[in-house]
Nucleic acid binder design. Structure first.
Lengths: 361, 361
DNA sequence: TTGAAAGCGCTAACAT
DNA sequence: ATGTTAGCGCTTTCAA
């Protein structure tokens, strides 16, 4: 019985038409006499009636479901903390609005296949999570007319997509500025995964600020990483073997920064006394595990939340002109970046800033 | 045009009936003449036809979608690494079978509301992820007849649910055995969150093994935690303030074990020289962040994978008798548990065992 | 105030 | 080898 009563059953029991039941159960009871309303309501109650959302979707041509598509490049959700925060934000926005989420994790790179799965009539719109360069997700133009919002990758305009992301450029610029303000001039940089736009944006910001301050960039101190901690550890090994070492290194994300600290521990190079290390992202687990990493914090939850909001707006209004939204980051000063030895006191840190744990020892 | 061609359009263009198109596009082309097949196929191709999955679901009374319901107790996916692994496993099983996933994250504790969202005709079955004691997810009996599999919580039989989980009891027993074998007799224990069945199961296993070995349990060394690292840190503080301290402490999960190491660092208590610490779960991030924690590893991915498999089996066969499947863990010996001072060489470790990093220094 | 009827796009018996 | 027909369970004009 339960879970299978249909509108027709309710109508029969209440002694009215299906239309009437439908209307009343959808809240249009002002059209009917109080008695009718009661009959329908209690019939539904007694039968444990619950509308079949599939039938409803078909009739309404609206599914109240949005898709969340993860880039096939990120094969495992587990290892993709970015997605977790974003998903949380998306869920937080959608849940109270009675939208459901369909998780789509294509395992192929063929856009036709990918988009056949995404746009098959079961969702009203889709959020693309951190599409990398060459992602099939970005080839939507030939395959779908669904409202789309991309998050976690600031894409070139030509993709014609609404986007919400953190402001990689501004945040990395601020971080670099700050490291410079601490008196460092010999600064290394570990780049992120080359298929991620963010990696390039972060690197570019670093370079620009260095140039603006007239600080020379030593190319041998710029190393390739892939956002994984091992790559950070490896890069650090290379870096620290060099005859001339930097006094500080900025990693394009926290995980690589942790890799650097691991190498330093192995090599007995004290942080920050001999080498200052800065990360980027303020990753939950890094923070959680007690690393006192100086980094930049972002509200990725908010990224998801806003993306969902924009998407729903697009769905509901039909207004689908691409818009881009970049959220600012916040410098988080902890303990892994020290004043450079040579120089003494310098102007105090910039505006937006969190200081934790007091002293920068 | 794209995305909106219907079966009817295809039929018209191919000059045949809707049935014919439907049959051919579903792969029943052996029924038809080659010419017909070609006409339909190319008509579909030209129109960019893609079946509407909502309509198909309604007609077939099958959605090819399964729900993954997260316990409302775990408000944020971000902080719930358990769910990540399990989700990965679920996705890995379902993706190639063309099943989709609907993520359901109820924010209320009212079972009627929760189940109205879950069982609304849009899914063929549901996986309950780590339901805690008192979870609305467990009140399915009055609200749903859907096939259900619970993962991440080994529930009492009376819930009449199929379950897949790690074998908390056996794994904690093995870990405790091993700590005992290292010569420790003064062993503390930090309990997990009291609403999790796993917390009780782990504690019980610890106690049982201690008793079996005739090692007295000191209740002041058994502390309450909540699976969070702060709770581990706090518990350690209490523990280490005691006049008599244990030589080893087992935390009911890795995160709390990390908390313990943090307290130890602050108090300058060397691990494992003065205090041995063991964790449980072999969490990805803990491992990743370079903690050399001795712990127990579980294949949570496999838990998800199997759960999906069992669920699909139930859906496809109608066979819904509850079954329980517990996966064994593996001891992972790293560096945070040392031989107890008093005692020298003891019998070598038990069977299933991974040794990493060589020496247990 | 209520109900009849058409239809959402597809599937699947059951003809022919 | 192909088509007719009757739904799936609901929404929504439109008429009464």
């Amino acid at each position: 019985m339960r879970g299978k009563a249909t509108l027709r059953d309710v109508a029969e029991r209440a002694g009215c038409s299906i239309t009437t039941s439908s209307n009343i159960l959808q809240g249009r009871s002002h059209l009917y006499k109080e008695a009718m309303v009661q009959r329908v309501l209690s019939a539904a109650q007694e039968l444990g009636y619950r509308p079949n959302s599939v039938a409803r979707s078909l009739a309404r041509r609206r599914t109240a479901t949005i898709g969340v598509a993860l880039d096939p490049h990120h094969t495992r959700l587990t290892h993709n903390f970015y997605a977790h925060d974003v998903l949380d934000g998306i869920l937080a926005y959608l849940e109270p609005r009675n939208y459901d989420i369909r998780l789509i994790t294509p395992r192929t790179s063929d856009p036709a296949t990918v988009w056949r799965r995404i746009d098959n009539g079961s969702i009203d719109g889709v959020i693309l999570v951190a599409p990398v360069m060459g992602s099939p997700l970005l080839e939507w133009q030939h395959y779908s007319t669904l409202p789309i919002v991309a998050v976690g990758s600031t894409l070139p305009e030509e993709y014609l997509l609404s986007q919400v992301d953190i402001d990689n450029d501004a945040a990395m610029a601020a971080l670099t500025e700050w490291v410079l303000q601490q008196g460092h001039r010999a600064i290394g940089f570990i780049k992120g995964h080359p298929l991620h736009w963010s990696a390039h944006q972060r690197e570019r910001a670093f370079r620009r600020v260095m140039e603006q301050h007239g600080v020379p960039i030593r190319e041998e101190w710029i190393l390739q990483g892939d956002y994984g901690s091992e790559s950070g550890a490896l890069a650090a090994e290379q870096l620290l073997r060099l005859p001339e070492r930097p006094t500080a290194v900025i990693a394009a994300n926290d995980e690589m920064a942790v890799g650097v600290t691991q190498t330093c521990r192995a090599l007995e190079i004290p942080i920050p006394d001999v080498l200052s290390v800065a990360g980027f992202d303020d990753s939950y687990w890094v923070q959680r595990m007690g690393f006192q990493l100086t980094t930049v914090q972002h509200d990725r939850y908010q990224v998801g939340y806003l993306a969902a909001q924009i998407l729903l707006h697009q769905i509901e209004t039909g207004e689908t002109r691409p818009q881009r939204m970049l959220l600012p980051g916040t410098l988080v000063v902890r303990r892994t970046v020290a004043l450079a030895h040579a120089l003494a006191a310098l102007p105090t840190p910039p505006t937006a800033l969190i200081t934790e744990g007091g002293s920068r020892q």
